[in-house]
Every structure is written in C-alpha cells, then in structure tokens.
Write a protein that binds this DNA or RNA. Structure first.
Length: 824
RNA sequence: GCCGAAGUGGCGGAAUCGGCAGACGCGGCGGUCUCAAAAACCGUUGAGGGGCAACCCUCGUGUGGGUUCGAGUCCCACCUUCGGCACCA
C-alpha cells in the first residue's frame, strides 16, 4: 500500500474545477445550438421550464440534472441537440407578493429570474441560453396574445358564464388554492360562488383527436390518465316534458344518460343546484328549502360533491315532468350530486340500477322500479342497485330483450319521435382562460359599443401591461382601474371603446413555449415554418407527473390548432414524454417552508460541488419515482468521486503485467460497465448507471492497489470511465480528461462502443436447487449444456444426499442461472 | 370519492423474460493510522436458530388467498402512502 504517498496527491476540489470549466464552455460557445450540423441529426430535448417562484429548489435539479446528463449523452451519440431553458413568469404568487410585500410583480419576477438563471448556470447544465424565453416579456406575450387572436378568428374562443370563487369581504375572485375549508385564506370570510362572464377555448372540439394517443411513445399510465380525463361516454340525450312550461317558455328538461335501457325505471329527476331551470321550476312552497339548499351546495367543492361516500342530499322543487316513454309523472329534485359541468346538468334517477340514485331514493322514500331483471329475481325489493346485465322487465314493448339491445332500441324509439338522440359526451370541459388578475397576458379584445367584441389586430400587439397599477381589490382585474389602459379606440370604427381587462390563464403561456425555442427572436411570427420544420415536434419532453393531464392536454390542443393553421408539422407536440417523480423532504413529505424540511440546493452545491450533487440526485432512486432527499447519503457519492479522482491522478506504480491476467479482467470490467451504462442511459435508469460507474471505480481501485497492471488495458479502462462519466459529472470528467493528456473537450467525443467479446464472462456460477430451494452453487463454463450441468450437480455430495432415495420427476435447467431437480 | 402510481434490511434502493432477494450507497459495528479527534482506508452487517469450526437450518419483498418445479415479479381481494381532480404551477 502506498497510502502515505497518496495523502500528498492533489485532492479533488470541485469548486475551482467547476467554475473554471463553466467559464470555458461559455466562452467557447460549447452549448450554442446551430440549426444544422453536417452529419448530425437534430434532436430536440425539452425539460419543463420553472415557474419563477424565487429560488431553484431540489425538485428543479431533480428534473434538470438527469435531463442534462441524457442530453450530453445524446450529443456524444452524434446528435445536434437543442436543449433550451426559460421561465414561466406570469401567475398568482407574483401578485400575492405585490399585495403582501409591496414589491411590483414585474420587479419581483425579474429579480427571481436573475437569481434562478445564476443557479441554473452553476449546475453546469448545457442549456443554450441564447434561446431563453420569459413568458412575462412583451416580446413573448405578444405572441400569447396572437394565439388568442388566432383561436378567436377560428371560432375556438367564446364568451360564456362560469362560477368563480368570490370573497365578499375582499371583494375579489379567489383561486382554488386561496380557498381553505370554504373560507378566504386572507380574511376567513365564507367564500361564495359567483356567476361571471368569461372567455373559454373550445378544447372539446378536439376531444376525439386528443383521445387518440395510442401512437405516442409516452408512459402508458399518462396516456390512460389523459383518456380518463377526457372521459368519453356514449349514451342518449333525452328530454322529459315539463308538466307546466316555465314562464320563460321552456317546456322540457334534457338529461344525458349512458343507460337508456333503464329509462322505464326513472322515478325522479335531479337537477344540479346551478341548473338554469332551478329557479323557474321551484314552487312557492318549496322556494325557501330549495334556495337554502342551493346556497349550501355552493360552498362545497366538486370533489366533495362527487364523493360516493357522502350521504346524498337533495330537495324537491315542487315541479313534475313526464317520462314520455311510460307517460308517468316524475318529481323534479335538486341535488348536489348532479354536476352542472357534465352532460346537461340534469340526470334521470333510476334507483334500481344506479347506486347513487338508490341511496337517494332510500333517503327520500322515492320508488324503486326494477327494469333489468337480476338472474333468478323473484320480484322482491333490492338491497342495492343492480348494475349487471340482464333482461328487460316492466318496460313495455322492450320486455324480454337483453339490456344491451334495449339501449339501441330505446335510442331509436326516442329518435323517431324527436324525444332524444344518441350522443357522445365528454367529461372534458372547455378551457376557461379568463382571470380577473393583473399579472398575466392581457386578453387582446376591445369592446366597442358600435362593433361589439373586436379582436386587437396583429399589428397592434402586444397589448402591454401597464406598470403603474393599483392592487385595490374591487372585484375586477386591477387593469380595470387603469384609465389609460381601459380607454382606447375601436380598431374597426375608430370610435371610443374599452379594453378587456381580464388576463389569460398562465397555462396558455406554457401551452406553446416549446414552439418558441426553435425561433425565439422572430418578430413577425411565433415561429417560422422553416424553424418549426427544423426542430418540431419535440423529440423528448420531460417533466413532473403533476402535469400529466392539464398542461399536457392544453399543449397538445395548441399544437393541433397550430397544425390546422399551417404553423407546424405533424399532429403531436411531444414524440416522447418522460414523467419524472417528485423529490420529497428528508422526512418523506413534500418540501415546504412551513414544514421546515426544505433542502436548499445551493448549500449542497457549495458543500459538495455540482457534479456530486447532480450524481447524487440520480443515484437516489429511480428517476420516475422520486423520493425523499436524504442529506446524509450524498457523502457516498462524494467519496466515490474522490476515489475516482485519486485513481486518475495517482495511477498504479507499475504499468506492466507479465502474466497478462489483468489485461483480460480490466477489459472485461470496463466493457461490461460500458454495456450496462449505455443500456441504462438509453432507458433513463440514472440510478443504476451511477452504481455501475461506482462498481467499475471500485474494481479499478483493487487493481491499482494490487500494484501491477497491464498499462494499455489500464489506460483504456480509465479513458472509458471518463467518457462514461462525462454526461453525469461534466466538470470532473472534463478536468480529468485534460489531465490524462486528451484534447478539449470530453463533451465533443464520440460515445464509445463496447466489445461484447471483451465483456463476456467465460465462467458462470449457477444455483443448484432441489425442489426449488437453493442447496448448492456450481461454477460452469458459460456455454455448458444441461447434461454437463446435471453431471456436475450429481457429483456434489450434498445434492447426492438430498436426491438419494427419491424419484427424480423433473429437472429444469436455465443456462447461466440455475438447475432445479424436482424429486418426490 | 374518482383517475393514476408506489409499497423490498435500521435507511435510499437493486433484481431486462417468472429463475441464487438485498447490487450500489448511507447508517451501524470492528479495525488501521493518530497523543486524541476528524478525514481517509480495510473488514463486517436481513431476522431467528444450531454448530468448536468450515458451515447448516428456518423465516423473509404491505396484508390475505391463488397459479407454478419455482413468485418481489403473474391473477383475485384488501390496506397504506403519494400525484392529479379543471383559478398553485
């Protein structure tokens, strides 16, 4: 051992190494991405941009460090990789900071971006900063407004009514997040639901196409979540005649049902509390009860209302309608388990064949009429709803038919008479994009008394956010208080007009940002067709699983629309998608300041270095799962890089090996590691990739300490190790690459190819089992056949003893794995 | 509640196809070096039991069943935790 000598060897000092290389890479423009490089196919790798909350947290690094590693690997595999970064900069927290801390959202956001950009640079990620986007910059949101205008011109934007959370004391709308247990987080007042006129996008026009995600190389569970979110249902929309037409002349109630086969079993009708007919159908005697019920329902969230555990409640309106098929009179109730946002906002109550309806009928003493017969049913009352298939009964002309056939027959019957029609309904709702807030992109609409609703012409974009605004809560967007902003002239008639004062949902900004990176400085289009063809669609998108439905559906919707207006190629924005897990605090819970379990990434970088921190985040566990961040575990990665460093700067004393065994073993170790690491990178298994590098380091260290190794094999192994290290620990790899006499830069090298012949083991150990229990181990040639294995096993005394006196019924041989002798 | 995912040593995790459970690391224990400590390095470490010992036996992948020569892996039922549920992003 040469421990003493080694203590004098230069120690690994990540801080100085990392700063030096980051400077050199930036100065040389190593990460600038040209549109085309001869012989290198383009690859667009994108990781979700951060919201400008103030500080980069460990979760951001958990997304970006592995992404950067894969990008560097892909470059070494010969691709010209676009790997951009930007900032999702509009949103509620900036406005909250303004109200609470007196900082203007613009200043708060800009300062945060400045800090976060610095933090991102310190992690050594190879972003092309020349393409940075900032969604709150007029040069960006000008195009967000352009998208709105395009959607408007294509009849995909419309105005409609929707409920918002309303705090009567603050006199303002509230985000769901600001409502805590039904009260305002600021003043504790009870939050109301208020109907407001808002802008929507017709994303439901694209429901069918969004549903078709079969061909995407995405995780199956994400595709499943999206399909379930869209929630396609086939059924029938059917009208029930009102006994008394309303004062407004409405004479029917429409319901959507997926079970038209049970229509003869309808014993009541349920309207959602927000259903437009509730007021008109409520009789004077019932008015008080209904109004108080509706007021109460507005305090509940949809999640609470949809709970099947909760006791069903409702109130009779006093009105009746007629089931046209049976001619029967049916009570109309209001109940909060009917949702205004799904179907028609009204449902038919069939207690015999729907559990919710069954529970409801029990509570309020409503009839239960069986119309699908359970097997061997004797006509006795049901104890729960029967939802399985069966034959129709009590259904007049449909009696005796299997219920599946009744569905079609009822639909046809209704259609013939004009009482209803087959219909496909989606759970997906149109996208509400209006926000009564300041810090967002203004909706580019002008309201003119003469011309009505007029979209701002492209050449007048952007509609800029005024800096000088008050945040007095008035119930309108703070923009409404800015006279200079509101008063304008109509682009069509030049008459006086008012600007729309709502801003857009920040999801809009993030629905198209990936189309901007290919052409970030274009002033005449969000992206030119040429640049779109060059880079789109994104080859690999990576982001948190919390975005699996909303953001990814919105982005897909935007892309399909972009295709329809001829902006981009293909049908889908993200060819591949990777859903990374969430990093938790050391206590296994979500990191939050109030829990005091936040780990500051900057502290980790200062203490251990960016390479160590990057590698540790990958080593922690599977990338797609995330998990707790254990502050103590990082020392293992630090020790590893230290040992690796020492291995290179203090190589074996004798680079010769007369017997030659070390050459074979070293090459086998290096090439089998290369095989594993390559495979792991291809499959994004970052944790086992790091483990494989550790194992190779440990093996090399054993050889080094043995004192004498084959020089050529050693050099080859070190070279391979550094090339494999380059994607995950770019600074250390670059430094050691230089120190081993190679030319700049390790990141411009070609990924090595492993030699299967060198990697292969020639002898393997297999398990010898008797009746499935391992009793012995056996070393065999890797290509040994079953007869050889059986013979060798029988020669083992323990095996012979266990088999002795028993009949061998079966022998299973799995080459390279095991031999199982089954005896009786 | 609904949709999706995950449960493996003291801890994070590994185990392409159903084939030796616990790779790699943290922590612990023992040791080297040191006046001492830290750092570094070496050895050891699933639980229980047996043996002077080399070793051997039993149990063990959230719970309960099942399929199979063989189950962490497949099937059925359940429990717990996490993500999302449309104005946090």
């Amino acid at each position: 051992m040469t421990t003493d000598a080694r203590t004098t060897v230069e120690r690994y000092d990540p801080t100085s190494i990392e700063a030096r290389w980051q400077e050199r890479w930036a100065a040389g423009g190593l990460h600038r991405t040209p549109d085309h490089v001869e012989g290198r196919p383009n690859w667009y790798a994108l990781t979700m941009f951060p919201y400008t909350s103030g500080d980069l947290h460990v979760g951001h690094w958990f997304a970006m460090a592995p992404s950067d590693t894969l990008v560097r690997y892909r470059r070494m595999r010969g691709h010209n990789v676009l790997f951009p970064m930007g900032f999702d900069a509009f949103g509620l927290p900036a406005e909250n900071a303004a109200i609470k801390g007196g900082l203007h959202p613009r200043d708060w956001t800009d300062a945060n971006i400045e800090r976060m950009r610095g933090q991102l640079k310190r992690m050594g990620a190879s972003f092309d900063w020349d393409r940075e986007v900032n969604t709150s910059d007029p040069s960006y949101y000008r195009w967000t407004q352009w998208w709105f205008a395009q959607l408007f011109k294509n009849d995909l934007a419309y105005r409609g009514e929707a409920l918002v959370n309303w705090c009567p004391s603050c006199n303002t709308t509230l985000a769901n997040e600001q409502v805590v247990d039904g009260t305002c987080e600021r003043c504790d007042s009870v939050v109301e639901q208020r109907m407001m006129s808002q802008w929507f996008f017709r994303i439901t026009n694209f429901a069918e196409e969004l549903l078709d995600n079969e061909g995407l190389d995405w995780p199956e569970h994400v595709k499943t979540m999206q399909r379930n979110w869209i929630g396609r249902s086939e059924g029938v929309e059917v009208s029930f005649a009102l006994e008394q037409p309303t004062a407004g002349g409405v004479d029917e109630v429409r319901v959507f049902t997926t079970r038209p086969d049970t229509i003869c079993g309808v014993t009541f009708m349920v309207l959602a509390p927000e259903h437009p007919l509730v007021g008109a159908l409520t009789t004077p005697e019932q008015r008080e009860a209904v109004e108080s019920y509706v007021a109460n329902a507005r305090r509940l969230t949809e999640i609470e209302r949809q709970s099947t555990e909760r006791e069903k409640t409702g109130v009779f309106t006093g009105s009746y309608c007629t089931n046209r098929i049976t001619g029967e009179r049916v009570q109309i109730w209001v109940a909060d388990y009917a949702l205004a946002t799904y179907g028609t906002g009204a449902v038919m109550g069939v207690p015999a064949h729907d559990q919710r309806d069954f529970d409801f009928s029990r509570k309020y003493g409503l009839d239960v009429r069986v119309v699908i017969s359970p097997p061997d049913w004797d006509g006795s009352p049901l104890t729960e709803a029967y939802i399985e298939p069966g034959l129709a009964v009590n259904s007049g002309q449909f009696d005796g038919m299997p219920n599946d056939e009744v569905k079609g027959a009822v639909a046809a019957y209704l259609e013939e008479r004009g009482w209803g029609a087959s219909k496909v309904t989606y759970r997906l709702r149109d996208w509400l994009i209006s926000r009564q807030r300041y810090w967002g992109a203004p909706i580019p609409i002008i309201h003119c008394e003469q011309c009505g609703t007029v979209v701002v012409p492209d050449d007048q974009l952007p509609v800029e956010l005024p800096y000088d605004v008050e945040f007095r809560p008035t119930g309108e967007s703070p923009l409404a208080l800015s006279e200079a902003f509101v008063h304008t002239t109509c682009p069509e008639c030049d008459g006086p007009a008012r600007r729309e004062t709502d801003t857009m949902d920040t999801f809009m900004c993030s629905s198209w940002y990936f189309m901007r990176y290919p052409d970030p400085h274009n002033t005449s289009m969000p992206v030119s067709r040429d640049e779109a063809e060059t880079w789109l669609p994104v080859d690999q998108y990576t982001g948190g699983s919390e975005h699996a439905t909303m953001h990814l559906l919105y982005a897909r919707f935007f892309y399909k629309f972009a295709r329809d207006i001829g902006l981009v190629p293909g049908d889908e924005p993200f060819t591949r998608y990777f859903s990374q897990g969430q990093i938790l605090g050391p206590d296994g819970r979500r990191m939050s300041k109030s829990r005091g379990n936040v780990v500051a990434p900057d502290d980790q970088v200062v203490r251990w270095g960016a390479d160590t921190f990057r590698a540790y985040l990958m080593f922690l566990g599977p990338w797609e799962q995330g998990g707790p961040y254990d502050v103590d575990g990082i020392v293992g990665v630090s020790r590893w890089l230290n040992r690796l460093w020492t291995l290179v700067v203090d190589p074996p004393t004798r680079l010769e090996d007369p017997e030659g065994a070390s050459a074979v073993e070293l090459r086998r170790a290096a090439h089998s590691t290369l095989e594993r690491v390559t495979e792991d990178l291809e499959r994004k298994r970052m944790n086992t990739m790091v483990a494989a590098l550790m194992e190779l380091t440990n093996a090399l260290q054993r050889w080094r300490d043995a004192g004498s190794v084959d020089g050529a094999a050693w050099d080859e192994a070190i070279e391979l190790l550094l090339l494999m290290l380059a994607p995950s620990c770019p600074h250390a790899a670059e430094e050691l690459w230089e120190r081993t006499g190679h030319t700049y830069s390790v990141h411009e090298q070609t990924w090595p190819v492993f030699d299967p012949a060198l990697a292969a083991e020639d002898r393997v150990e297999i398990a010898v089992q008797v009746n499935g229990k391992v009793r012995e181990r056996l070393e065999l040639a890797a290509d040994a056949d079953e007869a050889t294995a059986r013979e060798a096993a029988n020669a083992l005394p323990r095996i012979a003893e266990l088999v002795e006196g028993h009949e061998v019924v079966r022998v299973i041989y799995v080459p390279g794995r095991l031999l199982n002798i089954v005896v009786r």
